[in-house]
Every structure is written in C-alpha cells, then in structure tokens.
C-alpha cells in the first residue's frame, strides 16, 4: 500500500537543508562539519536549525581550516562516520585540494577496499551575485578530471534534495556543487521526507527535435530562456540538465544526439579542458552519436581568464544572447 507523499514548494537551499535533516535523522553516523555551520547556521543558512536539533556533537563548527575540515572528514569517514563537509565557497576549497586529490580519492584503491571514504563535500559555486573576489569560481573540471570522486550539480529544489540524499548514501566521495545564484531563485514542489535522485542520470527538461543543448547548475535558466526565444523562430531545442558531471549519463546524451544531430554545450566554468571538451570527446567516442552529427559541436563557456571582480562578471558569464546565437548558427547550418 502506498501512502500519498506530501509535497510543498520550497527553495533550492531549503531543499538542501531538508536533505541533511532527513539523513541526520535516519542515520546517526551522519555529521555536518564546516566553518560557521553550527551556531550561525551557515553563511547561506544551509544548515539553519540543524545545530539546535542535533547539537554540537553532530553539527560541528570547525576551526577556520579547509584542509583540516576535509582531512579530518576523511579520517571520520574511514572510521564509521558519514561526514558532510561544507566548504563555505567553492573558491575556498583549494587549501583542501591536496587532501582530496591525494587521499579522499585514493584510499579505497590503496587499501583494495579495506578502507573507504563515504563523505560529501558541499560547496556553493558560481558567479552572478556580485560577490567579492574568489567567491564566484566554477572549477568543477578540476574535480571531474580527478579520478576517484563523483561530481554532482543540481539546478532545482527537487533534484537538490534527492541528489544530496543519494550523495550522502553513496559509498564514495561526492563533490556536491550548489549553484548559489539559484539558492533562492524560486520555489518548486519537493516531497517531504526521504527520496533519492540517482547519481549519474541526466534529465530532459525540455523535449525537442532540432538541437540538443547540454548544461547544468546555474546555467540552466539561461539555457531555457535562450531555447524559448529560439522556439519563437520555430527551432525546437532539446534541453538536458546533466545533474551529474562524473560519471556522465552517456546513454541519454547519446540518444538525444542521435535524434537531433546538433549539439550545444553550455557551462560557466573555463573553456579549456572544461566539461564541454569532455562531452565533445564522449560524443566522438560514441560512434552512433558521432555519425549522426550534422554540424560541428558548439560550446558556450566562461572564458579562459580568472572569474573577474563583479563589475565584469556579466561579461564573463555565458548569456542568453550567446546561447541563442549558437542555436541560430546550428539551425541555419
């Protein structure tokens, strides 16, 4: 017998709080660690109310040390806990890079499975909110390149909650990137309680037959607006939200490319060796998809320059116009 699941409209950040709350309640080994996550409830309020509910032994205000947060989380994860480590901004993760690349990602392999690191690293990423320097980075490609860690990026409240729960239950390290521009951008129906959205599965958010547009995270609203604009010209785009950046959903990418034969990939991270480069190679490696191409694959990305100070961030970010320009180019190809 199935009971009806209650849903409510909540924001993306509320969905993230709910995912942690749900898992903290279900699994006593789940911990939250980070700078200002306790008493303050996180600088974005992602952990609001959790300290009051679960106490300082499980919602832990750490010293100001990213390498320390990740390094001790590795030890906790190896020894029976499931840490959710918050890095305050993705641009602050670099001191912890050594811990992730040399340890979190390798311990299962180095011990042939004797020790494992079931931890989640949460970090708000991306530009467009007039934040100070270093607060707006989108360096996901550093981590998709790195063997041994999954990379997940939700773009809406429903996926955010379901994917975060799946990440917490995953037996290996997961980097969970949160589009800070979408934290409070709108409310969506989200079920109460426990549910999962599978890691490794993309989603078609708009069906179409002419052009496949692949994107993720904070770029999704930009892509959808460009696709809607092109729809008025009679161009039907199929928009896919990748949701997981490693491992990519090869099957869905393949079937959509075979249908449309034309592809645009959009991300705000830097161009060289960014996700678009990997997806282009993936299409090349998937013979049926490659042979169905009717035009060169197009990409709209952040430039190969550091994410600028905010007076120039709109110039840096892919725009609706830039995506629309590529749609028109491919439609006329």
């Amino acid at each position: 017998m199935k009971t009806a699941v209650k849903t409510r409209e909540i924001t993306l950040i509320q969905a993230i709080t709910e995912a942690m709350d749900t898992m903290l309640e279900r699994d006593p080994s789940v911990l939250v660690l980070g700078e200002d996550v306790g008493v303050n409830g996180g600088v974005f309020r992602a952990t609001d109310g959790l300290y009051e509910k679960y106490g300082e032994d499980r919602i832990i205000d750490t010293p100001l040390a990213e390498s320390g947060i990740i390094g001790t989380s590795i030890g906790l994860a190896m020894n029976g806990f499931k840490p959710i480590a918050e890095i305050q901004f993705f641009g602050f993760i670099y001191p912890a890079f050594n811990q992730i690349v040399t340890h979190a990602t390798r311990i299962r392999g180095r011990t042939l499975g004797r020790f494992t690191v079931p931890m989640v690293i949460r970090a708000p990423y991306g530009a467009g909110v007039r934040a100070p320097e270093i607060h707006s980075d989108s360096m996901e490609a550093l981590f998709t390149h790195m063997p041994g860690i999954k990379v997940v990026v939700p773009s809406n409240p429903y996926d955010a909650k379901g994917l975060l729960i799946a990440s917490i239950e995953d037996p290996d390290p997961v980097l969970f990137l949160e589009p800070m521009k979408l934290y409070r951008a709108g409310r969506k129906e989200v079920p109460e309680g426990y549910y999962k959205v599978p890691i490794g599965k993309a989603a078609i958010v708009k069906e179409g037959t002419d052009i496949t547009i692949l994107s993720y995270g904070a770029m999704m609203p930009i892509v959808l607006k460009a696709a809607e604009k092109a729809e008025k010209d009679g161009i039907r785009s199929e928009v896919i939200d990748l949701r997981t950046l490693f491992p990519l959903d090869r099957e869905l990418i393949q079937s959509s490319v075979e249908k449309t034969g034309k592809v645009i990939i959009v991300h705000e991270g830097h161009r060289t060796n960014g996700l678009a480069a990997e997806i282009t190679a993936l299409i090349n490696d998937t013979e049926t998809a490659f042979l169905s191409l009717k035009a060169p694959i197009q990409r709209v990305t952040g430039f190969d320059v550091p994410v600028p100070m905010f007076s120039l961030e709109e110039a840096y970010l892919p725009s609706i116009e830039a995506v629309y320009d590529k749609i028109r180019f491919l439609a006329e190809y």
Partner: peptide
C-alpha cells in the same frame, strides 16, 4: 566610466595566448 572589458582579457598574461585572443 563603466568597467573596462580589457581588464577581463588583457592582464592574464603579458602576451595573451590564442585562446584568450579568440575568446575576446
């Protein structure tokens, strides 16, 4: 005046390699 777009592209390297020139 408004922020200068050259500040985005022209100060990453002494001489911009082709990817930055192309993107600019």
């Amino acid at each position: 005046p408004a922020a200068d777009i050259s500040h985005l592209f022209d100060y990453v390297f002494a001489a911009s390699p082709w990817p930055i020139e192309d993107q600019k």
